[in-house]
Design a protein around this nucleic acid. Structure first.
Lengths: 229, 229
DNA sequence: CGACAGCTTGATATCACTCAAGTTCCGTGG
DNA sequence: CCACGGAACTTGAGTGATATCAAGCTGTCG
């Protein structure tokens, strides 16, 4: 897993990066820029933007395993065999690991939360149809990135392309677009612009997400919730 | 579908269980018997049989998140919101936790391995088609449960129903059966009986699994031996 | 204003699901 | 030992959801 040292040139190779000075080391990534495993040596947390951890097959198929919003730390384990990719221009902060017991526990919590989220995602990919996946996705993103709107509504700037949503949900971009359109037609979600979503009433969307998931998907935000019934 | 209830006398209620009084606590589960979260209080490891950790939606859709073969320990985190279910009659051993730092590390390793496997599974469900999923599955099971056969082949007793394979791979039972038949017709896999598979040459199957996965899927195996690769 | 990237929409194809028989396997009882 | 019955498995036909291919549209930024 994460080894300690960083050299000075970190974050240099990808195109538009600005070179971080000293104290709080930062890495800038432009849209679609990636870091492979070899290019990271520390824990990273997202300051700004949206980061995807993804696997790409030789033929180009991509699966996004995990999305990290600002404030979240990228799980170094889930990213060992994968790419870290900015879905929108992003700023990352390098977290210095102290080699005491303390960071072990931090690593465990990261891993723990990630596993719970991964399990929810497995259910999504294995057993939900397209419409359900989209509903679950929007609800999840509203909780993580949305601003409250009216009574139980949410405004969300979706900082990723249809393409990326598709690769996260195991669909393709056209299907995502069609499903969005369907929600738009029914006025469950409004689209002032393609990346600006207004959900007037989140509970309408939540009603379209099978219940186990509606709870399970929150595992990485709160602690655990109710037992397995 | 019996749900086993456990009280003080752990391991009593499920059908055929033998009740150990003291030392190595064991739990027997008949086929399809389940333990909910409330019925477990410790780490469990599989002695015999095959255990699935699964989530079930209100409408009955089931996703198997994880399979545990003999010798493996069931990850308590991945099973917090889920059922533990025996796919074939199984024997579990209760592992007593000592509340020292040592078990923290054990928990971390369990979680770590599980997360790596979950990520591989996400790729499988999100981006592989039916034929690829089945190939990846058989290869994985051969490594974990198979006996070497000839030059680079493997014999596998598959201790689970088509149904269960389907719920693990996000398919349905008929599709699994059809895909098995296709492999049978091409003599890539032989079926002396429906649950007995002979893979004369594992590399033929491996060639049908996109390469990233062929490596990633082994993450959770550390320390177990399997047929060669 | 023009060009490009991203988005939407339509037509068609394909893969996997559903429903419905059959068939095989296996345990049980005559 | 064979007949029976149920569960699991296989197979086929038809359907539906999602992917693919192909335009066209929109919005953003020089």
């Amino acid at each position: 897993m994460a080894t300690a040292t960083l050299d000075q040139n970190e974050g240099q190779s990808p195109g538009t990066s600005a070179s971080p000075r000293q104290a709080p080391r930062e890495i800038m990534l432009g849209r679609s820029e990636r870091l492979g495993y070899a290019e990271r040596h520390s824990l990273l947390s997202v300051v700004e933007g949206l980061i995807a951890v993804s696997t790409v097959l030789p033929d180009g198929r991509r699966q996004i395993l995990c999305l990290n919003a600002p404030g979240e730390t990228i799980c170094p384990i889930c990213s060992a065999d994968c790419w870290i990719e900015a879905l929108t221009p992003s700023r990352l902060r390098v977290i210095q690991l102290d080699h005491d017991g303390g960071s072990n526990e931090a690593m465990f919590h990261l891993t723990h939360d990630r596993l719970i989220a991964a399990n929810a995602h497995l259910l999504t990919l294995g057993r939900l149809d397209g419409a359900e996946r989209i509903a679950a996705f929007i609800v999840d993103m509203c909780r993580r990135l949305g601003q409250p709107f009216g009574q139980g509504g949410s405004v969300l700037h979706l900082p990723m392309a249809r393409d990326d949503v598709a690769d996260y949900l195991g669909l393709n971009a056209e299907t995502v677009s069609r499903l969005f359109s369907k929600l738009k037609k029914r006025k469950i979600v409004l689209f002032p612009t393609p990346t600006e979503l207004i959900v007037p009433d989140l509970s309408v969307l939540e009603a379209r997400v099978p219940s186990t998931l509606a709870n399970g998907a929150r595992g990485h935000l709160n602690g655990r919730n109710g037992g397995g019934s």
